[in-house]
Amino acid sequence: MSNPFKPLPEATPETKPFWEATQKDELHIQQCNDCASHYFPPRPFCPSCGSRNVAWKKASGKATLFSYVINHLKNPSYDGPYSIAVVQLEEGPRMMSNIVNCDQTPEALILDMPLEVTFERMSDDINLPQFQPAKQ
């Protein structure tokens, strides 16, 4: 059953490579071949310089915890309060994530802590990237 507070994403032609990569438990982002900057979310040109000469590449999956809140409003998709975070990828771009597989408390969620990507199976089509504390 669909939950308006955790809706299933739908890929567009521009984002399809991202979602296809997640099917192999891989996080892919884009890089500009002209100015070398990595960027996210996906689009068929570089938001730094406007070049269409861009390529997909596999990200390391390493990130750090940039900021977050712990939501206490009831959401049927989550078992109690849960983190809604922004993580900074090793390559530079930031993305939203829950911080999973750890206590959802300020004591357990320390800014700048190392994280690694994992995946949450939402449907046949969507394997959602999530981040958890790095196992070293």
Binding site: P7, P9, S67, V69, L73, N75, Y82, N98, L111, M122
Partner: peptide
């Protein structure tokens, strides 16, 4: 819809507030 809402935000109280711990 693809890159924020799947993480369960419930409106502005859970999004607008994210920068503050930083």
């Amino acid at each position: 819809g693809q890159f924020e809402l799947p993480y369960g935000p419930m409106g502005p109280p859970t999004l607008f507030t994210i920068p503050v711990l930083r």
